[in-house]
């Protein structure tokens, strides 16, 4: 009867090994994605180094679904820069162009006014009531690079959340069932 147990053992151990292999390769994919993201954060100095444009306010330069790469540097912000800013209490970052800068003489604090290229008026209507200027702590980064259309993937996925789970499920299934 010994050979039956042996065979059974060898079969289960192979399957177990294969299963482990699949989980490890799945883990590798997830961790390498994380590593790439974290490296991007280090290089750019931004909390979120990539943003997807979701409005048409910068048309025809940037359209919905385009991707911008951000960079944070010590260089002061000047008129013409395209900045990503976050108004206190609102969580959707906005990508607009700086049209006015006032830099204080003694403190070197900068007061910044922005406007979307495609908007008829400046952004004061979008700031909090009574807020006239953006300051350094509102600014998340400066746009330095541009990649068209790629952001549509995330826009579609946030619009139709079911799609996200289907995609993640399908990818997971694919990795787990792949034969070596």
């Amino acid at each position: 009867m010994g050979w039956v147990a042996d065979t059974l053992h060898s079969v289960t151990s192979i399957q177990l090994r294969e299963l482990f292999n699949h989980f490890i390769s799945l883990g590798l994919i997830v961790t390498s994605a994380l590593v790439i993201w974290k490296v991007l954060i280090c290089v750019s100095g931004c909390q979120s180094p990539v943003v997807v444009v979701i409005s048409a306010s910068m048309e025809p330069g940037f359209g919905r679904g385009d991707i911008l790469f951000l960079h944070t540097s010590k260089d002061p912000i000047r008129a013409g820069d395209i900045v990503v800013y976050n108004i206190d209490g609102k969580d959707i970052p906005i990508v607009h162009r700086v049209i006015e800068v006032r830099e204080r003489q003694n403190t070197e604090e900068a007061y910044i006014l922005t406007k979307g290229d495609n908007n008829p008026s400046d952004d004061r209507v979008m700031y909090n009531p009574g807020q006239k200027w953006l300051q350094e702590h509102h600014i998340m980064g400066r746009a330095v690079g541009f990649l068209p259309y790629v952001g549509w993937v995330t826009i579609i996925m946030t619009d139709i959340p079911v799609l996200k789970y289907i995609l993640i499920g399908a990818l997971g299934l694919l990795v787990l069932t792949m034969k070596e």
Partner: peptide, 25 residues
């Protein structure tokens, strides 16, 4: 794809070391 061009007035005052105002774009 395109070039965005603007004309800014720049000057210094006792209060601000830099005033930069877009006049036309």
């Amino acid at each position: 794809k395109q070039v965005f061009v603007f004309l800014a007035a720049e000057y210094e005052t006792p209060k601000n070391s830099l005033n930069q105002i877009s006049l036309w774009d």
